[in-house]
Each structure stands twice: as structure tokens, then as C-alpha cells.
Design a protein around this nucleic acid. Structure first.
Lengths: 104, 104
DNA sequence: ATTCTTGGTAAGTCATTACTTACCGTAATC
DNA sequence: GATTACGGTAAGTAATGACTTACCAAGAAT
């Protein structure tokens, strides 16, 4: 549920594909696996990672586990990146107008 | 130089620390290593990853290699995340007002 | 010119991780 | 109730990656 989990979860290309796929339309695990070059258990494991990161949630319909993207998760990652951006730009600005100095 | 490289580069906590540090003020490799719990070669290797991702650049002053953050790199990552966000939200919106169905 | 500082690269190790197959439980179907 | 569809978990493997020490090249300093 932290931005770090979201970050490393989405760092994997396969997980990005999965997340994108279920973001476009929620799907059960098997259907998802058919569209991917990996086995169903592999998809299950990726979904667990995405779920632990809070990027995804699951509703159970009978034996079908239908996964859907959870916008909050992505929102948190965006929020982190924005704060990070600000911090970095602050440092960068300091560097430009005098670095350690502040004198001018 | 792609967003994927930036993403996986910043997925590593140590690399985030390094990036943040040199964003606050550009530093030579050795000075950077002193503030971190890892060896200087390890720092060098992290810097190479950050550099390949376009997040960092280096100016040479004698034997000193002074690394600085490159805002463009982060900007590209932010831009990607924003587009990604839009895409995901599109899918999410579709899902809400009818999804695959459209019937109701 | 030699010595010292600085930092990149090579090679090897250990942990992590992305995948596989095999297995098990549970809900639907006949 | 037996069978089939669905999916999570266990266990093992192969690749990746973060680190180490050892080494080498190049500029500074004495």
C-alpha cells in the first residue's frame, strides 16, 4: 500500500500490461492469462503483487475472481511523484542560484 | 532514456536516495559514497543506471566526476505517468457507465 | 617522475524475482 | 455425488540485480 510498492510493482513490464488490461476492463484471471505469453499462475502472482501495492482489487463471482484497477493506488503514486518532483526542483533551483551559497 | 528505464531506476530505494542527494546538490562520486552505506563502486554502478535512464548527467572536473540531476528525466517520467493515468481513468470511466455492456 | 587521489570496470557472490509444473480447495454443472 | 471450470499456493529453477573486492587508467600534487 505504499508508493514504493506501487513503484516497483509497475516497474515490471508484464505487470504494467496486466494493470492496463484490467484498467480497460475488469477481467477474471484466466481470460487475462489467455492474452499474455505467461502461465495462469504467473498472472495470479503478478496480481498478488499489484493487489499488495493497492493498485488492484478483486470481486469474487462464484469461482471467478474478477480483478479491476483501483485508481486510488495510481493516484497515490502520482501524488508521490509530484512531491518528489517538487523536492528535486527545489534542490535544482538552489543549485542554479548559488548552490550552497545563497549569496547574491 | 525511456520512461521504463526511469521507472525501474527509481524503483530502487538506494537509487532514489542517490538521485535525491545529487538533486539537492551535485556531488562527486566519492563524497556521495561517504554518505551511503555502500561501497564507491556500487555508487558508480547506480549512477550508470541513473545516467542510462537520462535522470542524471555528469561533468568532469579533473579526476572528479560531478553528477547532477537532470530534471528532464523526471519530467518525462511524470509525463508518462500522467498519460498512463488518463488511459487508466478512461478505462475506469467506461467501466462505470456500462463497461463492455452498454445496455441499461 | 613518482605518488596520491579519483572513479570506472571486471569478476564473482548472494539474494531476489519471474517463471514453470504440480497440487489443492471451492463453486458450478451434469 | 461425480466431474468440470476456476484460481490460489507450494516448490523448484533460471535469470536478474545489488553488492563486494581487485584492478586499472588518468589527472594532481609533491
Amino acid at each position: 500500500m505504499t508508493y514504493q510498492e506501487s513503484l516497483s510493482a509497475l516497474a515490471d513490464p508484464t505487470r504494467r500490461r496486466i494493470f492496463e488490461a484490467i484498467a480497460q476492463s475488469p477481467q477474471p484471471v484466466g481470460a487475462l492469462a489467455k492474452t499474455l505469453p505467461i502461465s495462469r499462475p504467473a498472472v495470479s502472482q503478478h496480481l498478488k503483487v499489484l493487489s499488495d501495492a493497492g493498485l488492484v482489487l478483486c470481486r469474487v463471482e462464484g469461482t471467478r475472481h474478477i480483478y479491476a484497477a483501483r485508481p486510488d493506488g495510481l493516484a497515490q503514486l502520482r501524488a508521490w511523484l509530484d512531491r518528489y518532483w517538487d523536492k528535486v526542483m527545489d534542490g535544482f533551483a538552489e543549485e542554479i542560484n548559488g548552490g550552497g551559497g545563497l549569496d547574491d
